[in-house]
Structures are given as structure tokens and as C-alpha cells.
Design a protein around this nucleic acid. Structure first.
Lengths: 198, 198, 198, 198
DNA sequence: TATGAATGAGGATTCATTCAT
DNA sequence: AATGAATGAATCCTCATTCAT
């Protein structure tokens, strides 16, 4: 019996993400997960009480580094504009190295309409958005970011770019560098609203 | 027998959009459509060969005005920046007056992973994006928009804002004015990259 | 309005036979008939009370010439062995000129298991068999056919050959001459049990 | 929980044959199978991927002994004419002891028109026919069977008799001895074309 | 942990048929 | 004669889940 590098539970989660990536959220069935994991369907229920719990676990997996990223970005002693760039770059780099995960980012609405995942999705969505806004607010206070645009608007814009770019990336079959293109666009926007010599 | 204002076919499409709006894309079943429309399930198949055809019809409904909007925006004799604003405002006004339709906008990824809808979704997505970019390009040529940002980046940013705002709107239970908030954000961005006295 | 050569009723029957020929008995649906006839499904029910009646009409069409053939074969002033050959040749010539009709011949069992067609199928089946046996009996009486084999056995054998050959013909994609091959086989058998100089 | 004598899979196959026997091929539905087997419809799909696979399994069941019979008939050290009689007797004895199986023999055409079963049916049909012809050929070579009739014709005749008799048996409600009647007819034919003292 | 066998509810779709026009 | 719109029952099949082993 060879030891597994990741636990069965973890394996099921990763397999599920892969399935959503390939076949969409409706393609995720216990049958398909079992087949790909090489276990029986009933085995899945030893690791997750229900499919809903599995989905919740997927969402947790998806957002598992969020708090750490928030903390790290804040901790690094750079000015606020660089912090925003850091934040964006961290995510798109992660996505670029793990394309299937962008399927989750783009399936928010589907999950949102289900009461069971409602809260979770909302909290992930707004945590990121709020953190971004917080960074912008500090930048404004520090006099680095223009007051011409509200912090909410700029945060929405940046988050919108990340989401748009990852959707476009998926639609283009991952044929460009998500990181480079997203950073280029975000930096262009930032340049328009900051007082820095880049 | 009172005459119907809209055809059964149209009714099924609108009902379907309503269901996707409320229950997500996976909530759309012929059974549910039939129940809400007050007809039998088999009746649906007299109007649509298959569920896939119904979904295609939904996508066509969703994008039915796109070409007309593109043409109208171009036709109106305003400068390019106003044209962009027009474009954005047309869509968000439509969305604000018909919230369920935003469910379709946010279900792209789900539809995209199905071969049957693949192309259609892609074409709608890129038609809008390309039109926006075209407007930006003209604005740059006309000397109204700064060359500091690439036309692609600005188009992506604006489309990203529209998409982000409509998702946020959905997550906030439609409790703010989509039109106002989106226009405010888009205008802030435009102000940063145009040479106009607003 | 161009006049039709055959009546709608007749057209529906012929179309149905064609469908059974191509898609098997289970392929026969009112939908398919309507599509091929270029009429609505409901129109079919103006010509036939029910699908069962249509099937009965198909069986009647299939056996419409039987009595006439029996009479004609008897009427012709030839000896009994030639009469048997006549009988067989008449049918296989008809089949060869109208391959789809063999689908009906081969679908007996399917129809037989339905109470509605039970009797009809049985009567067609036994009428042919009994007529053949009658011919054989006469041949024996006339001293043309050997008493070494019972009339029933010879009739069964000949009918068996017709049925086997038409099934084989279908399975071989109608790629040989049903008439020639069947006559050759039947004649070989007859030669073994008759006292004639062929 | 009492142990079952036959597996569920086998049970489903036998039940299916019984249904085809009673209600014809179109009477075979997963619903009816489930009802008779005393299980749920979905349970069927744990044993067979699809209804088509079940039908294929039925055909395999129907022809499961064919190769063994061919081998056994050849192995038995009897002369070729007896081998033919052996062959025929083996099948009709099997049919007589298990009447429902004749429903499958008589449903060839129906199955043949479906691409999925096309080949299987053809291969069963021609394997039997070819084996018979092979036996006849040897009989001719051994000088036991007359060259007056071609081996193909005699094989077709004998197979035709088997098929005709089993259809007649079905139509007569199994009210005569299939084995006896068939053997009588086949033997009569053989007598006409062999040089043996029976 | 795992499985195999099972299930009830629901999935899309096809069926023959009806009825008002 | 014909249609268009509809239907209820049945079609095959998938779903997440349970339970005894």
C-alpha cells in the first residue's frame, strides 16, 4: 500500500475542482468524482456528509489562503500602491499556476443562488473586495492615490479586472499569460490615479 | 380563451430566465418551466426541440439588442467618450429594469463549458468587448482618450466594471441603483483617461 | 393543387411500411409518419382511428393480393408442382420489386404478441401455409409428389425457405436476387420429392 | 437475506426474455423489468450501462451455447447426416424446454434494424447458417449427401424449417412438440437427399 | 475507510391521442 | 381534410444518498 501524498479528502476536492473546470458546475456529480478518484461513490460520503459539504469544502479550499494573503500584503513594508499590485499579483500568479481554480471564481453566481452556499460565497466575495478597498483607502490617506475616484469605485474596478481577465483567459483557452495581461491592465489603471514615478 | 400578449415560446424563455435568476442555472428544469408556465412538460418540446435549443433561445434573447445597440451608439452624433458612456448606460439601464437578465450575464462560465453553447457565449462575450475596444480606439484617434492606457486594457476595465457591478448587485439583493453606481465608477475611470471638461 | 396519384390513406400506409423497413417496427411512430408524409400528426387520425388501425391497414395491404393469388394459381391450368412454383415465384417476385414489404413479413412475431393484431397475423400466416399444403396434397393425389414426405412437412419447408431467404436478403442488404435464389432452392427441394422431368 | 441462486444480472436477462416472449420486443421496458424483478428501475442501470447493453446481453445469452454446440457436434464421432440431425435436435430440444427463448429467435429483424445490434444479430444468424452449410459440405464430400442440391440451399432449407417451426409453434400456443415436429420435417427432407438406410 | 447493491426522486424526451378552429 | 397547441403517460436514464457488510 503506497502512501498517498494528499489525503483522500483533499484528493476529492481537487478532483472536483478539475471536473468543474472541465465540465462546468453541473458536470460535478458524485459519480464522476468517484470514477476519477478511483473509488466508489459511497466512499465519498465517508469523507463528506453530503455533496453540499463537499462544495463548501471546495469553497474553503478556493479561499484558503485569502486571510494569509491579506495579512502578508499588509505586513510587507511597502507603500499602499505596491500593496495593491502585490495583492493582485498574488492571486493571478496563483491562478496562472493552477488554471482549474479559475472555474470556481467564475461559478460564484451559480453557487450564490443556493441557500447552502449563499453566505460563504458572499463572504469570500466581499472579503476580497473590502480588503482591496481598505488598501485604496490607506493609499488615499497616505496621499498616494487620487481622491478623484472613490475607494469603492477603484476597488470594484480592480476586482472587476481580475474577474474579467480570468473569464477572458478561460474563453481563450488559457492562451495568454493571465499574470502579465492582468498586471498590465491594473497598472495602467493605477497609474491614472496615483502620484508615483513608476 | 383570452389571447396572450406574448407567445408561448416567448413566455417559456422569460420564465426560464426567471428561474435561472432565482435558482441558478442548475435550477432550470423542464419540469419547473412547465409548472410555472402552467403547461405540461411535453408542451415545451413543441416549442423547442430540446432543452439545449431553449438555452440557445435564452442566449439569443439575452443578446437580441446587442447589434442594434452597437449601431445606435455609433449612429448618435456624439464624441467617442460619450459613446462609451452611452453604451454602458444602455446596458445597465436595461439590467436595472429587468434584474433577472443579469443572471444570464453571470452564468457565462457555466454555459461556456458546454460544447453546445460554447460558441454562442464566446461570440456574445467578445462582440461586446470588441465593440467597446473599437469605441476606445476611435476616442484615442480623435485625441479624446489618453494613449497612456491600451484600448484593450480600457475596454477590459469597463467591461469588468459592468460585470463586477452586476454581480455585486445580485449579491446585494438589488438594493442599490445598478445604473447610478456603475455609471459613477465608469465615469471616474474615464475621467482619469480622457481630456474633457466634465 | 396537384392531384395525388394515391390517396392520403394509401400514402400513410406506404410510408409506414417504408419506416418499418428502415427503422424496424418500433421505429414506426405517428411523428415519423407525419414528418415523411408532410402532414401534421393529427391529420393521421382523420384517416385512421388509432395507430392500431393503421397497423391493421398495413397488414391488410401486405396480404391484399393473397386471395387473388390463391385463386389465380388454382385457375391456371398447370399441374400441381408448377402451381407451387407459381405460388412461390409470385411472392418473391413481388418482394424483389418491393423490398420494404419484406419488413412486414419479418415482423410477424412482434405483431403477434399484441392482442389487437394477433388474429390477423395468424390468419395471414396460416392462410398461406394452408394453401401451400393444399397444393401439395393435390400434387400427391395426382401422383406428382412423393408420399415420402407429409404434405404439411413440405408446405412448412417451402414456406420456411421463403421466410429464411427474405430474412437473409434483408441481412445481406438486398445484394442478391431474392427471386432467383429462392426459386433455385425451392426447385431443388421439389426435385427431390416429385416425379417429373424438369 | 436469502441468497439468490442466480445473480441479479442474470435475473434481469431472464426476466427480459420472458417479457419479450409475452409482450413482444416493444413490450420490453426498464419499468416492466424492474417491476417483475422486484427492484427499482435505477437498479437495472447498476447492472447494465444502458438498455442497449441489456439487449446485447440478451443476445449473448441467446447464443451463449452456439460455439459449444458447434464444437460438440463436430466432436461426436458420427457421420455427417447424423451430425446435422444432432445440430437441429440440440436447438429444438433447448427451445422446447425453454419456450420464451424462441421469442428472441423471432425478433431478429426488429433487432437487426438497430445499428447497435446489427452486427451481433447478423453474426449469430450467419454463424448458425454457415455451420450448417459446413456440415452439409462434409456430407457431400463423404458421399452421404446428394450433389443434386447445393450445400447452401440445403442449409438454408434446414434453417428455414427450424425458424418456421418455432414461429408456428409460438402461433399455436406451444401446443405441439416442437422437437418432434421439427425433427420429422427435417428428417423427411434429409431422406430425400441422402444415401442412407434410415 | 471502503464497497456493492439498492433506491426514490427527478432528469429530458417521445408517445399516441384530443380538441377547438 | 387539415392544423396547432396541448396533454398524460410512458420512455430511458442520472442523481445523491443509504445501509449492510
Amino acid at each position: 500500500m503506497e502512501p498517498r501524498l494528499i489525503s483522500r479528502r483533499e484528493g476529492i476536492i481537487l478532483t472536483s475542482i478539475q471536473i468543474i473546470h472541465e465540465a462546468g458546475f453541473q458536470g460535478l456529480s458524485t459519480r464522476e468524482v468517484a470514477k476519477r478518484e478511483g473509488i466508489s461513490e459511497s466512499a465519498i460520503f465517508k469523507h463528506f456528509k453530503s455533496k453540499g459539504e463537499l462544495i463548501l469544502a471546495i469553497l474553503n479550499h478556493f479561499s484558503q489562503y485569502d486571510q494569509a494573503v491579506f495579512t502578508a500584503v499588509k505586513a510587507r513594508k511597502v507603500h499602499e500602491v505596491e500593496a495593491i499590485q502585490d495583492f493582485v499579483e498574488t492571486f493571478v500568479t496563483y491562478y496562472e499556476n493552477y488554471p482549474p481554480i479559475t472555474a470556481i471564481l467564475n461559478t460564484y453566481d451559480n453557487l450564490f443562488s443556493d441557500k447552502e452556499f449563499n453566505e460563504k460565497v458572499k463572504s469570500i466575495f466581499f472579503a476580497r473586495l473590502n480588503f482591496l478597498q481598505e488598501l485604496v483607502d490607506r493609499g488615499v490617506e497616505a496621499g498616494l492615490i487620487s481622491g478623484e475616484i472613490s475607494s469603492e469605485a477603484l476597488a470594484d474596478t480592480i476586482d472587476g479586472i481580475i474577474r474579467l481577465m480570468s473569464l477572458k483567459w478561460r474563453m481563450n483557452n488559457f492562451s495568454f499569460s493571465l499574470r502579465e495581461e492582468t498586471m498590465k491592465t491594473v497598472n495602467s489603471i493605477l497609474k491614472g490615479f496615483t502620484f508615483l514615478n513608476h
